[in-house]
């Protein structure tokens, strides 16, 4: 009786563990499934057209068999680079403010604000950009929907990512260092520049990588404000189309090779993101989100 009871428990526990393992495998397999389906749908056009023509064709007219993705790729990289260049200093200085400059109450309030900024959906950013920012830029330098509008909205959107990560990594700077600086009579900014930044460097780089990932993947807000003309922009005021916006705009009516070509741009996006995750994993030795 007693024996059978224990073995029953043991069996039920084994069943639980195997059940959990099956569930975890399903969760883990989703990424593989995503990659599989992207590649599966991308293969037809890659076989019929070949990978090179995505860079060498005259233009992007999938209906008439021209598949040049370069303008969109350049668009994505431009928007991403400028947005990261704007958001990184703003975000890091915001974190510095919370940790070293603000009185505790204001710091707490400002942190809430940054979290609020992180929680606003991209479609709302895009809408606000469309009705407020784009007309302003249009008055300054027509037409309005432009690379500039896209980067400004995007930098606002990715700022919370870098600010929150920087804030967390500043918390981890050993207080002994700060006390040492105070004992040496260093000013606040001298301490931050020469001690805090170098100590927190790994965290800051992770923050930049995470915000870059967000910037590349962002779709709706950029789509709504940047004009979406397929071209390599010549100035900040020219309209631009990103890879993500291209997918969102054309997926609705794309068929056959065209549809397949959009999945190719999805694969390109996944490759870039995969590289970023790999860099972040190496930097953090696998503890990115722990």
């Amino acid at each position: 009786m007693f024996n059978s009871n224990t073995s029953f428990h043991r069996r039920s526990e084994a069943a639980l563990v195997w059940g959990l393992r099956a569930i975890a495998l399903v969760s883990g397999a989703i990424v593989l499934l995503i990659v599989f389906f992207l590649v599966w749908e991308a293969i037809p056009v890659l076989q019929q057209v070949g990978a090179f023509r995505f860079f060498t064709d005259a233009s992007w007219h999938p209906a008439s068999n021209e598949f040049n993705l370069t303008p969109m790729l350049v668009g994505t990289l431009l928007v991403m680079t400028i947005a990261v260049l704007i958001a990184t200093p703003l975000g890091i200085l915001s974190a510095v403010f919370c940790q070293y400059y603000a009185p505790p109450r204001i710091a707490q309030f400002y942190r809430r604000l940054i979290e609020l900024l992180a929680g606003i959906p991209s479609v709302v950013y895009g809408f606000w950009g469309l009705v407020v920012l784009v007309p302003l830029i249009g008055r300054l330098h027509p037409p309005g929907p432009s690379l500039l509008a896209g980067t400004l909205i995007l930098s606002l959107m990715i700022l919370p990512t870098i600010a929150l990560v920087a804030d967390a990594s500043f918390t981890n700077v050993s207080p002994d260092y700060l006390k040492g600086c105070a004992a040496l009579g260093l000013g606040r900014w001298a301490m931050i520049q020469n001690v805090v930044f170098p100590t927190a460097r790994a965290g800051l780089i992770t923050g930049v990588i995470l915000e870059t990932g967000r910037a590349i993947g962002e779709t709706m807000a950029v789509l709504m404000v940047s004009g979406n003309v397929v071209q390599v922009p010549k100035s900040l005021f020219d309209p631009v189309r990103t890879l993500t916006a291209n997918i969102a705009l054309e997926m609705a009516y794309a068929v056959d090779q065209h549809r397949s070509a959009l999945f190719v741009s999805g694969v390109v996006l996944m490759l870039i993101i995969g590289m970023l995750v790999a860099i972040a994993e190496v930097l953090n030795r696998g503890h990115l989100y722990d």
């Binding site: 969760s27 883990g28 995503i34 993947g217 997918i247 996944m270 989100y289």
Partner: peptide, 18 residues
Amino acid sequence: VRLSLDTLAGVPSIVFGL
């Protein structure tokens, strides 16, 4: 599972759509 979840967290929403 951990590695694939880290990657999943970085996948752009438009790729989820595709």
